[in-house]
């Protein structure tokens, strides 16, 4: 009996100590990890769609709430004045959800560009939606597009041949992005 108690006590003790120590470490590193993820995952996409900005895009990010959901907003500034914003939305591709970063020029009311930040599409087929040839097509598209639905956007920019589903996911994400744009602008102007 004594042995069994000792076994249980030792195991519980080790687990508890490890758990507490790890949660402490998480607390300390959480902020740094969040920053690193932003720099390495979203960072490259944000840099491309907000090209020409002079501020530190990652440091100047904002968190806003749209329809109860948190949206991470990146603001690009030129000569100290905000000129463009970017945020991510999700679409359903062939292999699962794909995340698209859409950038907007707030003065010209056009898209500065899009970047697929993360995806699970088939390499060589669906993954072609990440290539410049496709994403370049969205540059300069007007915010006041007649029909801001996936179908309407498909009419503006051709899908990647052979990757209809994957392209559809991108259209879906952009449509969602366009739909929340007025609300985002309203909130981003507020201090």
């Amino acid at each position: 009996m004594k042995e069994v108690t000792q076994m249980i006590v030792v195991l519980t003790l080790i687990c508890t100590v490890c758990g507490v120590a790890l949660s402490g470490l998480l607390e300390v590193t959480a902020e740094r990890i969040e920053n690193q993820v932003l720099i390495n995952v979203q960072g490259p996409g944000v840099k491309i769609v907000l090209e020409g900005s002079e501020n530190d895009l990652i440091a100047d990010r904002k968190k806003i709430k749209i329809n109860g959901e948190e949206v991470l907003l990146f603001v690009g500034k030129k000569d100290g004045k905000p000129w463009a914003i970017a945020y991510e939305t999700l679409g359903n591709g062939f292999g699962g959800s794909l995340t698209v970063m859409v950038g907007y020029d707030t003065d010209q009311k056009t898209l500065t560009g899009i970047q697929v930040v993360s995806h699970k599409e088939t390499p060589g087929i669906g993954s072609r939606v990440t290539e410049d040839q496709f994403s370049q097509g969205f540059r300069g598209l007007s915010i006041k597009i007649e029909d801001p639905s996936p179908k309407g956007i498909r009419g503006e920019v051709d899908a990647v041949a052979g990757a209809t589903y994957s392209s559809g996911g991108v259209y879906e994400a952009i449509a969602k992005s366009l739909q929340i744009y007025p609300e985002v602008i309203k909130q981003s102007l507020a201090p």
Partner: peptide, 28 residues
């Protein structure tokens, strides 16, 4: 550590240090 549960204890200890490495490598 009692002999009967030593492997379980070792595994918990090793796994904890692995999580430390996971967190530190993500951060730095």
């Amino acid at each position: 550590i009692p002999r009967q549960v030593r492997i379980a204890c070792f595994v918990v200890i090793i796994a904890s240090f692995v999580v430390v490495v996971e967190l530190l490598s993500q951060a730095f």
